[in-house]
Each structure stands twice: as C-alpha cells, then as structure tokens.
Simulated scan of single mutants.
Amino acid sequence: MEDNRPTRKALGNQAEGVAARYLARQGVQVLERNVYNRGGEIDLIGRDHDTLVFFEVRYRGTGSLAGAAESITSGKRKRLLNAVKFYLHRHRLWEADCRIDVVAIAPGESKQYRIQWIKNAIQA
C-alpha cells in the first residue's frame, strides 16, 4: 500500500510559500527563502518598512497537540538565533534594525489556512 501523503519537506516548502504570499500582501518585501548557514536555517528574510525581519514559519496540521507557534522548542530558538547572528555577521549588518517573527499556519475552517503573524516572537 502506497503512502501518498506529502513529505515533511514538501509540507514545509508549501507552508513557506503560503507565508511568503501572505507577508507580501501585508507589505513585507520578501528578500530570501531557505537561507542555510553554519548557524542553521532561516525560513524567510524580508523587509518590513525599515526593519530587517527573519521569519520562522511553522505549520501544524489538523489533530496536532501543540499549536504551530507553541511548537518552537528552546533548541530551535537557540539554532535560529545562531543562524541570525551568523547572517548579520556575514553581511555586516550588526547595526541593522532587525527582529525575529513567527508565522504560524494551520488548516482553516472558512479559508484554506489560518495564519498568525507574531512580531518580535523570539528575542536574544
């Protein structure tokens, strides 16, 4: 019997696409997707007015015990902070006004997705 469910990576890519389109409609200029460096991975990087924003995109399907935003562990926070620090260092952006936001995505009831944008969700 074949399992036709999408892979975890495919679901992640789809959620990042949903988040990027949502953020663009909110006026965010999405600059980069899936940035990998020695510190870890950054899902999306964008500019919200004059602020450089690093986005962690979380998706949780129907029946998940924890919500998308609540699924960020202390280990994930630490890896994300390291990735952001490395990115800022590599691009010489230490003086940049920046923040880390979370875009939490879940299946919707009246719309396809329920999206929650949490600004400044993760702080150093």
Rank of each mutant, 00 (worst) to 15 (best):
M1N: 13
E2A: 11
E2T: 10
R5T: 13
T7V: 01
T7W: 08
L11M: 14
L11G: 04
L11I: 15
Q14G: 00
A15S: 14
E16F: 03
G17M: 00
V18W: 11
A19Y: 10
A20V: 02
L23V: 03
A24T: 15
R25E: 12
G27R: 03
G27I: 04
G27M: 06
V28K: 02
V28H: 14
V28Q: 03
Q29N: 09
V30H: 00
V30I: 15
V30A: 00
L31N: 03
E32S: 10
R33F: 01
R33T: 12
V35Y: 14
V35W: 11
Y36T: 09
Y36P: 00
N37P: 09
R38N: 14
R38F: 03
G39L: 04
G40R: 11
G40D: 10
I42W: 09
L44V: 05
L44Y: 09
L44D: 07
L44I: 07
I45G: 11
I45E: 05
G46Q: 09
R47M: 10
R47E: 06
D48M: 01
H49F: 07
D50V: 01
D50G: 02
T51I: 12
T51F: 01
V53I: 12
V53E: 03
F55Q: 07
V57I: 15
V57H: 14
Y59K: 08
T62L: 10
T62Y: 08
T62A: 11
G63S: 12
S64I: 00
L65H: 10
L65G: 12
L65D: 09
G67Q: 09
A68D: 08
A68C: 07
A69C: 00
S71I: 01
S71Q: 06
I72P: 14
G75C: 01
K76E: 14
K76T: 05
K78F: 00
K78D: 04
R79N: 15
L80Q: 07
L80S: 07
L80A: 08
L81Q: 12
L81N: 12
N82G: 15
V84A: 05
V84W: 03
K85T: 12
H91P: 02
R92E: 14
W94R: 12
E95V: 01
D97K: 15
I100W: 02
D101P: 11
V102R: 08
A104Y: 06
A104M: 02
A104K: 06
A104F: 05
I105W: 05
I105M: 05
A106C: 03
P107W: 11
P107S: 05
Q112C: 00
Q112E: 15
R114K: 14
Q116C: 05
W117A: 12
W117G: 02
I118G: 13
K119H: 11
K119D: 01
N120G: 15
N120C: 01
A121E: 02
Q123W: 02
A124Y: 10
